[in-house]
């Protein structure tokens, strides 16, 4: 192929064909001296830029393990993860993980502002004023700009998780990985945080991978739902979600498409238990 030919193929094909995130034959086995326990077996999955994908499975099936492998926080026993065609060998730039336990993921010795600053401090050098400005902006997105000088433990659970969300967004990732981020808050706060994530997702053109055991949450939020089997986790099926956007917290949950997908997923999950 000539160089001229290469130059004529530019942007168009790259944006449509190649996935943002690709998992090839991911497996994880926990080895102990006398036995080895397979946790995950041969998972293949591709995720396009801008997608909201949920991974659902019975509890203890290895969902969180899978997410930590995608995040580059855990090495797979076999297979590879690729972000924009580059293999992930540690936490890559442009991808951050938001954890379930906000009370442990925020640093209690730092103020809310310093916690948010932690999200980008190691990515870019900025003057104090610019950093403070950035913190303020991201705290405003989650409605907490007045709580900059507080400490995380002075805030409610829902507010703490908002701080954690602001910190994750402040890193300006292209891919946000969510590890059951709404399961430690009360029901009403959960609905608010879900709407917040949807707003931020569409505003920032994020790609989101959410791990959850909450089927309704998965159906309400995502474009595709990956159903995992029991341990060792394999992909049982991938569902496309026809529920129209924008999603509304009350109405969308009464939509027949929401109900039938929820029905399908729940009955599949109960059968695998």
């Amino acid at each position: 192929m000539s160089e001229a030919a290469l130059q004529t193929v530019p942007m168009a094909s790259s944006s449509t064909a190649r996935p943002l995130l690709a998992l090839h034959g991911i497996a994880k086995t926990y080895a102990s001296p006398d036995s080895s326990v397979p946790a995950i077996e041969s998972i293949n999955l591709t995720i396009q830029s801008g997608e909201f994908v949920s991974i659902v499975g019975p509890s203890g099936c290895g969902k969180s393990t899978l997410l930590q492998i995608v995040a580059g926080l855990l090495r797979p026993s076999a297979g590879s993860v690729q972000l924009e065609e580059r293999p992930v060998s540690g936490p890559p730039e442009g991808m951050v993980c938001l954890f379930q336990q906000y009370s442990r993921s925020l640093f209690p010795w730092l103020t809310v502002e310093r916690n948010v600053e932690f999200g980008f401090r190691h990515l870019r050098d900025e003057s104090r004023a610019a950093a403070a400005d950035r913190c303020r902006r991201f705290l405003a997105m989650v409605g907490l700009e007045d709580f900059r000088a507080r400490y995380p433990w002075e805030l409610s659970g829902g507010m703490q998780q908002r701080v954690a969300i602001a910190r994750a967004l402040a890193a300006e990732p292209r891919v946000l990985l969510l590890d059951e981020p709404f399961s430690s808050v009360d029901a009403l706060t959960r609905l608010e945080l879900q709407s917040l994530i949807l707003d931020l997702w569409s505003a920032a053109k994020l790609t989101i991978v959410l791990v959850t055991h909450d089927v309704e949450e998965a159906v309400y939020l995502s474009d595709r739902i990956v159903l995992l089997t029991r341990r060792p986790a394999r992909i049982a099926e991938v569902f496309s979600n026809g529920l129209p956007r924008p999603r509304r917290p009350v109405e969308s949950r009464e939509d027949p498409r929401f109900l039938s997908l929820r029905h399908e997923l729940l009955s599949r999950l109960l059968r695998t238990q």
């Binding site: 930590q68 993921s105 932690f118 401090r121 190691h122």
Partner: peptide
């Protein structure tokens, strides 16, 4: 140390 602190430090690419 809470292992979660270390995961957070790594996901935000603290050296």
């Amino acid at each position: 140390i809470d292992p979660m602190h270390l995961l957070v430090a790594r996901t935000f690419r603290m050296p």
